Simulated scan of single mutants.
Amino acid sequence: MTAVDVPGLREVVAEQPYRLLFATVSGAHLYGFPSADSDVDLRGVHLLPADEVIGLRHGPETLERMWLRDGVELDLVTHDLLKFVRLLLRPNGYVLEQLLSPLVVQTSDAHAELAGHAAGCITRRHAHHYRGFAHTQWQLFGRNNELKPLLYTFRALLTGINLMRTGVIEADLSVLVESLDGPSFLPELIAAKAAGEHLTLTGGPSPEQLWQTYEQWLAELVAAQEKSTLPEQPSAEPQLHDFVVRLRLTA
């Protein structure tokens, strides 16, 4: 996993208008294949004070900002706690990855408590999230022939398979390739992408090989979902309800 400038990013999150329960790095840095010119995807949860929730003037459920800082493009998105928890209770792999990202910029006791409920939010239905994301990225690769969507495709498939088999979120493609005996051409493509965010595929596996490999790992994900012992529905809703109420009342 490529290092990021955590001290510099802490300065960024300190400038945010609401209390942050956590801020982590997602995207290509988390997935293990950032490029020299990759932006930094900061994701987190802010906590709206009670008077911006129960009154007539509601605070922002989502805050988004994209800007350049010291030559690096930053993409910051935070959700209010209630919205984030609602997303967490859906089969949404993105928010699970953000919550559990090891690239932590800011944390808190509330972050640790929320992460402790993550296992109770994971279900067999998360396979649909990863299949859908892989399909979208595969179509994008078919249009632009860039390494980025190709790597995103296989990252989604392997993350989904690993989740169905183990109940554990692992987002780093290099780790997944090794643990799942993934496609042998991926390490070379990961290394190639380091040179640029929008490089096209040159050489490497043929279109036929890529298609066959995509179909193979898509079938693996379907099979992993069918065999998975994960529950159909999340079990953590009561605990998360109490968690949201308690934090809101102390905001």
Rank of each mutant, 00 (worst) to 15 (best):
P183A: 05
E146A: 14
P231H: 13
L47A: 05
A171V: 05
L147V: 10
V25P: 09
L147Q: 10
V13S: 07
V85I: 04
A192Q: 14
K193H: 06
F185T: 09
R65W: 13
E220F: 11
L199I: 08
L82M: 00
R69H: 08
S35R: 01
F141G: 02
T24Q: 10
T78S: 15
R143W: 10
D75Q: 13
S35W: 05
E64P: 03
N92G: 00
S108T: 05
D80H: 03
T62C: 00
R69N: 08
P234V: 00
V45C: 01
N145G: 11
L103A: 12
T136K: 13
K83A: 12
M66F: 07
R10Y: 10
A223P: 03
S174R: 15
V104G: 05
C121N: 05
T2H: 14
F185E: 06
L147Y: 02
T62L: 09
P17H: 13
R246I: 07
Q239I: 03
L21K: 08
G71I: 07
R165W: 13
L9Y: 00
T107A: 11
A14Y: 03
D242Q: 15
V168I: 15
P238M: 05
T24K: 09
A195I: 07
A118I: 13
H198I: 05
E113P: 05
T229S: 13
H126N: 05
E208V: 12
G120Y: 12
E11N: 01
V175F: 06
L173A: 10
A23Y: 01
N144G: 08
A251I: 04
I54C: 03
T153N: 04
L173V: 10
V77F: 01
L157G: 08
A50L: 15
E188M: 12
V85N: 02
L30T: 02
P149V: 00
L74V: 08
L151Q: 05
V25S: 02
Q137I: 01
A119T: 10
Q225A: 14
Q106H: 14
A112G: 02
Q225P: 02
L21Q: 01
L230W: 06
T123C: 03
R86P: 01
S206F: 07
G120N: 11
T2R: 15
I161C: 11
H79C: 05
G55Y: 14
V95Y: 05
T250R: 12
Y130P: 02
F243Y: 13
L180Y: 01
L189P: 00
S26H: 15
D5H: 10
L240I: 09
A3K: 13
G44D: 10
Y214G: 08
L48H: 07
V95L: 11
E15M: 08
K148M: 09
T153A: 02
K148C: 09
A156W: 00
A191C: 02
E170T: 14
L9A: 08
H241C: 06
S38V: 07
T78Y: 03
Y152S: 01
G93H: 04
Q139S: 11
R43S: 09
H135L: 15
S235P: 04
V104S: 02
E64C: 03
A50F: 14
I169C: 04
P7Q: 00
D37Q: 06
V175M: 02
G182M: 11
